[in-house]
Amino acid sequence: MALPRLMRMTTTSPALEIRGLRKSYGEKEAVKGIDLTIQPGEFCGLLGPNGAGKTTTLKMVVGLLTPTSGSISVFGVDNQRDPVAAKRQTAWLPDEPMLYDKLTPLEYLEFVAGLWGIDARTAASRADELLTRLELHEHRNERCEGFSRGMKQKAALAGALIHDPRLLILDEPLTGLDAAIARQVKDLLAERARAGCTIILTTHIMEVAERLVDRIGIIQHGQLLAEGTLAELRQKHGRDGASLEELFLDLVSGKAVAA
């Protein structure tokens, strides 16, 4: 299978640069001044307890929520000044697949490609490639209403990849998937990362974060508690040899301290 087109792209701007990001809902402050920089080609995992502010942060990155203050730039494009240009480079896959029950996967991909302005020939070829890769090709003309959760998640992932995003953001992509489908998704993500795609995912599965991602960010109460490679985090918090799970639990419970 041909390598994704991302290999051809080069850029000097960070893939994602977040500065002083805040989001309030009335009195409640969901995100309290996050700063984060992710370089092109990095595979980053955001970890945190439920309600920590991970999804809110990512929704602001993809333009679904407007920050109360702070800035976000995607490959040097400010997503509030030029949201269309920022969105053109980004794909968002939420934990609940965004599908239309009455459309087939092929029609769904056709629709998503249309939204991103991909020409028909390119879109057809990418759709074919992705559906084959995700073992959905034989179901391409069946309506999604009959699909299992795993199949829906794969169709949604294909939709996120059809426009060949430079920044792929996934919120709990492996939730509810069986081992075989989770493996397919993980393989595809690793392949995309090797091809140069910048990937950010949130997960509660520490083993996935430990195995897949290059850098880890831990969010709690709307703040970035720690950020770096696993080795850097261990060193910074004086927990040599600790697993990510141990480190994470220590950090969110306040036991770990900077060394």
């Binding site: 009455k102 029609e107 991909l109 020409d119 057809a124 003309n141």
Partner: peptide, 23 residues
């Protein structure tokens, strides 16, 4: 439920569309 949406042999029907057409 495995109802067919389009003809199996038909290639992806992306003509003319664009954003407005797609919606």
């Amino acid at each position: 439920a495995r109802r067919k949406g389009v003809n199996d042999t038909r290639p992806l029907s992306m003509h003319l569309r664009g954003v407005t057409g797609s919606i």
